[in-house]
Amino acid sequence: MVPAILKRTVLLWAFVLAACTVQLAPAYDPALVQGLDQTNTQALTLFAELETGSPASDFPSYAPRYAALIGQFESLRQQAMARQIPPLAKRLSGLKLVGKLCKSETDPAACVNTSPASLAQILSTFRRMRDTHRSAGLQPDIVVLFRGNYDPAIAQALTVENALKR
């Protein structure tokens, strides 16, 4: 026979559990997702135009395109960085299990708001691509490598941001 006090304790805990939902990641931001979709289209268009290569002498006609892409991705990165992170989520990323991977000592949000890092990677790609285009031009295989640097990062940001819609 189960003691009455144990029964009452189990019932109390069931009630407490039932009454509490948790939030372990930021809220969905439709404007951020829309911005990512639009800027991604512009980036893919630039890659398509450059896939056969481009000499340094052509750079001036592409300079405004690089500036627009870098500006838009920087704005999206700031938007993603500025949003509120639920306190429970920050505590979760401090767990020993993920502490090393998540660099929780220096950035408590590194594993619960991953898009800023993915967008920083995209920015670094376009800045380097712009500088290479300006100084030496772009060979087709180098364009493929810049695209290869861009694709995983944008896929990370799009997947994570879309998953936040819950």
């Binding site: 948790v22 939030q23 372990l24 990641a25 989520a89 979760l92 990323s93 993920v98 991977l101 998540c102 590194a110 594993c111 619960v112 708001n113 991953t114 890092a117 993915s118 990677q121 670094s124 790609t125 640097n149 995983p152 990062a153 990370q156 997947t159 994570v160 998953a163 936040l164 819950r166």
Partner: peptide
């Protein structure tokens, strides 16, 4: 860039897992 993308991918998996737990 390859290394950074791999690290960011692993952190994204942690975030997607946290979302599933939530």
């Amino acid at each position: 860039g390859l290394q950074q993308n791999a690290e960011n991918a692993a952190r994204s998996v942690v975030m997607l897992s946290a979302l599933t737990i939530e």
